[in-house]
Nucleic acid binder design. Structure first.
Lengths: 104, 104
DNA sequence: TGCATATATCAAATATTTTTGATATGATTT
DNA sequence: AAATCATATCAAAAATATTTGATATATGCA
């Protein structure tokens, strides 16, 4: 696990907000509007994040890529959308690492 | 507590190394050579960090300032040296915050 | 006081990250 | 197949962070 890479991901306020959105697990906008089955209601797609944070598409894309690369977020394409899920295990691992490193 | 600021501090490999040095609590070089009393042997001064990491003085100064500003490190001037100590409470608080935010 | 040592600060140079707009890719619908 | 929608990628611009060398400040010592 790359500790400093994860810290870097967590250091951007926008990425932190996105992570909080994913943790909250608001129901996604897209499956509703397009009648995809209900279990799609976990995770969020790009457009949801764009709307909520008022960001343009490529900016969201950039940040999601950063998050996915650290493993803090998993992605899953569904139809023409892409869904994102917070990976709690990764964060838990990171916390454990911090505890060890800082002797806590 | 500024979560993203702390993450930012933890995101630089050099600062992370410095924190590890402070946690390890190697005895400082300066008090020994200059016969300051023994309880000075906790914490590290700039020169110790310079030597160990092979960095020039202003660079160390910059990173120490960053660390102190987040509260992850406390400083204490002693004579013409400045000693630095890892602030474990701050890190513990940050970990607690992460746990809460990520529902862990 | 004057000199040496330790650290701080500053401005310029570099490097890295983030944002943007344009365009490309890929899936869905008609 | 063509049009549409969602996302990815790219290159340039903008913003931030880091490094460096020079100089300043502050302390202790001869």
């Amino acid at each position: 696990m790359d500790k400093t890479k994860i810290a870097q991901a967590l250091s951007d306020p926008i990425r932190y907000k996105i992570l909080m959105m994913l943790i909250r697990g608001d129901s996604a906008c897209c499956p509703i509007s397009s009648n995809i089955n209900l279990d799609a209601h976990t995770g969020l797609c790009n457009c949801e994040i764009m709307n909520e944070l008022g960001m343009i598409q490529s900016r969201v894309s950039y940040h999601m890529k950063e998050l996915v690369e650290t493993g803090l977020v998993n992605e899953e394409p569904r139809g023409k959308w892409k869904y994102y899920f917070a990976n709690s295990n990764k964060i838990a691992d990171y916390i454990e690492q911090l505890k060890q490193d800082f002797k806590l």
